[in-house]
């Protein structure tokens, strides 16, 4: 394949991947974060104590997470059509990606929030903080390094998932690699796709790590 043609294909696929990952990541985080905060604080005797709801939400999260992604993509096609107006293409692919991201983010955020010392919640309550203030000013603020790493991991996983949405015409780098590199026996396309993916993941991970380090004030030495 001519280099300029390859570049054009790669560019188009990269844009599609970034588009899918960004939108799914954003919406998934917006929905998953509150669910994660709820899961971390709704056990017996906790801030938003609702053990029953906690168990039900946990069950739904587990069920979604244990469904293989490629099956989820196909299984929710009617829902995708309802939301996106179509069941094929990049926009349609964003629906299952988002749906898979929500429970993923929720569990990771839950873990990050649980890392926050319970004594801080008690201190904040003793100051007269409302539950909302405890969540925003204490829990999320203190868990910021962990949350940053969780979201970094989410983006990296999303890049991986996005390779599968070629099945519904989602496009993107993974799809390019499968169709050109594998089905048309063009190893140079496959190699190029892999290199771009590695660079992309590397960039996301490094940025996430750097940000998390900046937020983390726990191990400062004088």
């Amino acid at each position: 394949m001519a280099p300029d043609m390859l570049l054009a294909l790669l560019w188009k696929a990269l844009v599609q991947t970034v588009h899918m990952v960004a939108v799914a990541g954003l919406i998934g985080t917006l929905v998953g974060l509150p669910i994660g905060v709820f899961l971390a604080n709704s056990g017996r005797g906790e801030l938003f104590a609702a053990p029953m709801v906690n168990r039900i939400v946990g069950l739904i999260v587990n069920a979604t997470r244990s469904t293989p992604f490629i099956i989820l993509v196909v299984a929710i096609i009617p829902f995708t059509r309802l939301v996106a107006g179509t069941s094929i293409g990049t926009s349609a692919a964003i629906v299952p990606l988002t749906l898979a991201t929500i429970p993923f983010v929720a569990r990771l955020i839950e873990a990050a929030i649980r890392e926050v010392d319970r004594g801080l919640i008690e201190a904040a309550r003793a100051m007269g903080a409302s539950r909302w203030q405890i969540v925003t000013k204490v829990l999320i603020a203190e868990a910021r390094p962990g949350i940053t790493l969780a979201l970094t991991l989410t983006l990296v996983s999303l890049i991986g998932y996005s390779a599968m949405v070629g099945a519904v015409g989602g496009g993107g780098l993974g799809d390019l690699g499968i169709r050109y590199g594998y089905q048309r026996f063009m190893p140079e396309v496959m190699a190029a796709v892999v290199v771009v993916l590695i660079l992309l993941v590397q960039a996301v991970q490094s940025a996430g790590d750097a940000l998390a380090r900046r937020f983390d004030k726990r191990n400062r030495q004088t």
Binding site: G119, A123, A126, V138, R144, F215, K217, R218
Partner: peptide, 14 residues
Amino acid sequence: VGMIFQHFNLLSSR
């Protein structure tokens, strides 16, 4: 009513 704690309970991020 102010309160102080054995393990201080300070926010590490502040």
